[in-house]
């Protein structure tokens, strides 16, 4: 399988990369791990005239777990995310997402920014990141902006990232107090799998045995972009967490989602699974919230 021809650029700083993108615009594509882009280029879905590699920019490879929000550089790999003990401790659902992405080989290449910008409906990192309320930083020569991940996706393969913009960082506020989250990927195999449905849930309690203060439920692979389910979230807020409550939230999430039929599974099956997995993800989130401080 031959790759179309292109010119290759390897900036070593973010500024240099922004400058190149400003000059080349439409004609160029950024390449990070290449696990999405190279496949698309081999299949001739894309044939950019220029590739601008981000792999030599060390500033994009840091994970900062110290004070303030967790900051993850664009080029941090899924493997590095999954192996980080600090991330596992504070953001277990996100850590889980990174650990089930692709295969061990793919995880050593695949980057977090590539996973977000490729905007596949079934991608493994967006649901938990949305549930934690993550933001991304987009930079260009003329300046930078920050966008909530919730407002980031536009459709399959489409995001708000401009032609001359680079996603440089992902920020997640550290959850305070009694908070927890869960992520479940459902496929027919344990590995090398595109999800049939994936669900992330986040809840915070007002005290260890208290009521639910905030809740976020995010469904992946059941719509063109990962979606929140406000109706199911509303059922939870202000209530004492119980099994019946989580069952009701699951039912509501299933009712209010519009999954499709395809060769991986029927819409009916997916809807049933949304019900079950939402309940389970909430239980995971609750158990973690109770034990976190």
């Amino acid at each position: 399988m031959l790759l179309p021809k292109f010119d290759f650029h390897e900036p070593t700083t973010i500024e240099e990369a922004c400058q190149i993108m400003a000059e080349l615009g439409q004609k160029a594509k950024l390449i990070a791990g290449g696990t999405d882009l190279i496949v698309n280029m081999k299949r001739k879905v894309l044939s950019p005239e220029h590739l601008v590699s981000l792999s030599r920019i060390d500033a994009l490879k840091n994970v900062d777990l110290s004070d303030g929000p967790l900051r993850i550089g664009a080029c941090v790999t899924a493997a590095a995310l999954a192996e980080s003990e600090g991330i596992k401790r504070t953001f277990s659902a996100f850590s889980k997402g990174a650990s089930v992405l692709g295969t061990p080989l793919i995880r050593n290449l695949a980057t977090i920014a590539g996973n977000l910008v490729s905007a596949r409906p079934a991608a493994d990192l967006p649901p938990s990141l949305m549930a934690y309320g993550a933001k991304v930083v987009l930079k260009k020569s003329a300046g930078e902006r920050s966008v909530a991940l919730e407002d980031f996706f536009r459709g399959p393969g489409q995001t708000v990232v401009g032609k001359d913009e680079i996603l440089t960082e992902i920020l997640i506020d550290k959850p305070l107090g009694y908070t927890g989250a869960g992520y479940i990927k459902l496929g027919v195999r344990k590995t090398l799998e595109i999800s049939l449905v994936n669900v992330a849930a986040f809840i915070s309690l007002d005290s260890q045995d208290g009521s639910i203060q905030r809740a976020r439920i995010v469904l992946g692979a059941v719509a063109p972009i990962p979606i929140r389910v406000p109706s199911a979230e509303q059922i939870l807020v202000g209530e004492k967490p119980t099994e019946t409550l989580f069952v009701r939230a699951g039912e509501t999430a299933a009712q209010d989602s519009r999954p499709i039929d395809d060769f991986r599974g029927s819409a009916e099956y997916r809807r049933d699974m949304i019900e079950v997995l939402t309940r389970r993800a909430l239980e995971m989130a609750f158990n973690e919230a109770r034990s976190h401080e």
């Binding site: 061990p104 080989l105 290449l109």
Partner: peptide, 8 residues
């Protein structure tokens, strides 16, 4: 370990 078919 990586897939060398995806690395330039």
């Amino acid at each position: 370990p990586v897939n060398s078919c995806l690395v330039l």
